[in-house]
Amino acid sequence: MENAKEKYIEDLKVIRSMMDRSGRFISLSGMAGVIAGCIALLCAYLAYELVYEGQEYFSYRQFSATRSELLLLLALGTSAILSSLGAGYWLTRRKAKQNGQSVWGSESKQFMASFFPALITGGLLVLILLAKGFLGLVAPLCLLFYGLALVNASKYTLKETRGLGVIEIILGLLGIYFIGYGLAFWALGFGLAHIGYGIYMHLKYDA
């Protein structure tokens, strides 16, 4: 009888692991979140130095940028996104291997198909706004669309991403309301929230 019990405990483990692994892409790495957060903080600092040079730290700030400063900002943002994605991909691939999941399997495709539409829409919108000169909206809208993408994709990956998404959405809306403090909210959302959630998820799933 005891043997039979052990077999069925083993069976329940198989059932749970298969349900988890087949429905969700569970190999997202927490460390990737921490790295992305650090990159974001560094970029926010560089952007701050670039844009708000000579203005006071915590008061309303006027944002004015010349064309070359704008291009520099764009390059900064793009390299932040690319290096975060690169680190994320590398760490996630490593974790996927441990989980016996494929980075390009049907679970990750489901995840990406629900993650990228909102993100790409937001990216294009931000580029249009930049071109039209609505600079103040750029940082909060990045947060808003990133949050929407996360909430939408959370049903296909670790469920904690939903909470992170909601935080990004709230910060995005606050950033629009308190326009002029966009970069501070951006640093909170992409920097601190990522680091916090990354550490939490690393401890919960990776350790």
Binding site: V14, M18, S22, G100
Partner: peptide, 27 residues
């Protein structure tokens, strides 16, 4: 059987799965 158990566990939480995905998941 573990394979049949695995196939059923996967299919009850997914609308459908193709042969190769099942093969990959169950190794």
């Amino acid at each position: 059987n573990k394979v049949r158990l695995g196939v059923m566990s996967i299919l009850v939480v997914n609308e459908f799965k193709d042969f190769n995905s099942l093969k990959e998941l169950l190794q």
